[in-house]
Design a protein around this nucleic acid. Structure first.
Length: 223
DNA sequence: TCCTTGGTTCA
DNA sequence: CGCCATGCG
DNA sequence: TGAACCAAGGACCGCATGGCG
């Protein structure tokens, strides 16, 4: 089974740049999208109904902000939106699909770059999420998680760990939560398969051609 | 992210 | 509608 | 004196919205 996670930074923008062709080529069984930046009524039928897939959308109340969706060939038993905690459920960040033999979360975790109070919000979000997952695991459920976590775990996971140790995305208090993910039983699959591989990133700064030079961060995960 | 400015340390 | 500023990442 | 090492501040790009004429 092929699962894909993709932060598109505007699904309408990528739709103009071959999104549907790419999906066809990649042929995922389940495709998890973050940062759709759109509400359902802003999307036309080609995005709402991709042939062969069921689709589920969750949008922020604020226009043009955040938002997630999932396209899946296999039909889930049930789908729910949000973490079940009012504070975290107004920005379309969480889609939870129950497939019976496993639960899959597609999550766009908050970006803390706008200030300390947003970092606090991000940490509370992590906390709420982990409590929920722990409960499900204690009940014997298998849980898969993918999405944009917005934190690099260890020094190996970004180009300039020293210079970024005071920047949101690599703060000590954020990295501790990546430890908590592991303690909860959520395995960073990439790092499990490639424990020593360096310079593999999922996000690059828009500044100074960072992507061309592969100066980046690994902040998107499959657990 | 990178470059600049300005401040500190220490051979 | 085009143009520019703002918010966000 | 000057080399080396920081901390802090500013410009930077792309998507989307909204105000204005």
């Amino acid at each position: 089974m092929r699962l894909i996670s993709w932060n598109v930074n505007g699904i309408r923008a990528v739709a103009k740049k071959g999104f549907l062709d790419t999906v066809k080529e990649l042929d995922p069984d389940i495709l998890c999208i973050q940062e759709t930046k759109a509400s359902v009524d802003q999307l036309d039928d080609s995005l709402l109904n991709i042939p062969g897939y069921k689709s589920y959308f969750s949008s922020a109340e604020r226009k043009g902000y955040s938002g997630t969706c999932v396209y899946t060939k296999r039909e889930p038993v049930s789908v729910s939106y949000g973490l079940g905690e009012d504070e975290f459920d107004h920005e379309g960040r969480t889609i939870e699909l129950d497939f019976g033999d496993f639960i899959l979360y597609n999550i766009y975790f908050p970006n803390g770059g706008r200030g300390p109070e947003i970092v606090e919000f991000k940490l509370r979000f992590y906390d709420c999420f982990l409590k929920k997952v722990k409960k499900q695991m204690d009940e014997g459920r298998m849980v898969l998680v993918c999405g944009d976590v917005n934190t690099a775990h260890k020094e190996i996971d970004l180009s300039n760990p020293k210079a970024n140790s005071k920047i949101s995305g690599f703060l000590p208090e954020e990295r501790v939560y990546m430890d908590h993910f592991a303690e909860t039983g959520l395995v960073d699959t990439f790092r499990m398969l490639y424990p020593d591989v360096t310079e593999k990133y999922t996000w690059w700064s828009y500044k100074t051609f960072a992507r061309d030079r592969n100066v980046g961060w690994r902040i998107d995960y499959f657990f």
